[in-house]
Write a protein that binds this DNA or RNA. Sequence first.
DNA 1: GCCGTTTTCGGCCCGACTGTTTTCAGTCG
Length: 583
Amino acid sequence: MDKKTVAAVFSEIAVLLELEGANPFKVRAYQSGARALESLDGDLRELAESGQLGNIPGLGKALVEKAEILLETGRLPYHEELKASVPPGLIEMLEIPGLGPKKIKAIRDKLDITTLEGLTKACEDGRVAALPGFGQKSQQKIIEGIRNREAYGRRHLWWKARETAEPILEGLRGLSAVERAEHAGSLRRGLETVGDLDFIVASPEPGPVMEWFTSMDGILEVTARGETKSSVRLEGGLQADLRVVPPEQFVFALHHFTGSKDHNVKMRQRALSRGYSLSEWGLTRKEGGGKESAEPPVRVADEAELFRFLGLREIPPELREGMGEIEEAEERDLPDLVKPTDIRGVFHNHTNASDGHATLAEMARAAKEFGWEYLGIADHSKASFQANGLSAERLERQVAEIRRLNESGEAGIHLFSGLECDILPDGSLDFGDDVLGNLDYVVASVHSSFSQSEEDMTRRIIRAVEHPLVTMLGHLTGRLLLMREGYRVDAAKVIDAAAANNVIIEINAHPRRLDMDWRLWRRASQKGVLASINPDAHDTGGLAYYEAGVVTARKGWLTAEQVFNTRPLAKVKDWLDKRKAPA
DNA sequence: GCCGTTTTCGGCCCGACTGTTTTCAGTCG
């Protein structure tokens, strides 16, 4: 039982209490208790054993006692009783827009309904509209909410969200009433998946902005339209929210809606401890009694100034996850994060020799257009027969072709001959040293036997990492975002092995992978592990995915120095040569 | 249920929007 599990139990208690109609502040106490545990530094069990739990802000007598019971016994009778008393159908109802604890309680008490099926029927025969506080529109909204739950409830890939958001942002910026416009939320933070789009606009005249936003192309439905706030549902299921604020509030609104929640909570606490109240509306001086003073609100020109006012260096949006960035920004300069323009080439790309769609020459030409100095080709090896993996002979022909192109210079860019070599179930590689030794580099990846135990998978991958001819480790977990969980592997042990063997770990930049996860990179880079941002391109367009990888690297606090493919060609050649030379 | 330089009670973030009301409760972020 770790802090995450205890926090999850507290979060669930909060939801259950909410449905029971408990005191909202009691609900919030469990929520903030859960949050306090999630963002806790150090080992929960050690803190409990030394009697330190009560010193954690947000944990009072009752929550400390419950945490201790959970740690000791692995169960919490209070939680179990609560869970038994709340039908699971009610928890599902919370996911329907417009239904909160009060309305769900009314549905349960007055109609004796505890399932979504029952609720659908009651809507269809008009019983819901007859309830006090409900009406025809609420009833219709519930029916649609249940119907759309699957399609709209899910998250979306960051890449897709950005593609959707960019034309909207451009459109907003093009309006004469708009002074400034930005997107915010998890899209701006660069989170791997995005729930909805948030747009913040500075304008003294919100009317025309709202009008444009609620009538632009690609809207399925306008779900809210007010004077300063509107929401629309876009084709593809994404929801987009627009907030128009007076120009002097823009920076505060932008910061607030960029979040994350944890980051904002810590920023507000910091403001309070300095005698100010921070919100999406602004920063105001607090009198001793907690009342606002007559002093005018603080003015800031941009986010850098807002951070500076609170005694912090500017924190890039990607780092605002409430994972220690504020503490760091107080003490010292934050790392100079890697930028898209730092990238000088990419490894791990496929051609039509295996499962790609473009030829070697086409890939090289496209890479040259990005302004890169080099391109690495890493097609699949023979064990990946589903991906038309290369035999030794076909690989040899590709290597010869790459050498010819490099010697003639006709590609206009240096090509590295590599391979995405399968790591077989026992951890050995798909080709012998005789074949692998002829290549410039080797990316080793798992493509089979995903269901091995964590222990076996970890041993398997570490064995590959320890192989002297392996240059990089491909997609560490094999996850496919929003589709498939990764295989079970002890990432910390693999990171240690990579550090010990001077093996690069890739940031697979395919928008559906973004693997190894950004949450692991800060630790990995501290141990000296180098990253390579690899688009895993299967056609020329796929090369552009490197940008998603840069965002992942930034979220992982990585600088250009910590990313291998920011190095110029000569240094890359040098590094690869030295790596191959026998020790 | 938490918290305290207004300290053991009485606050706890609050504004926008919708739908149902006719001045406001509930939801959302």
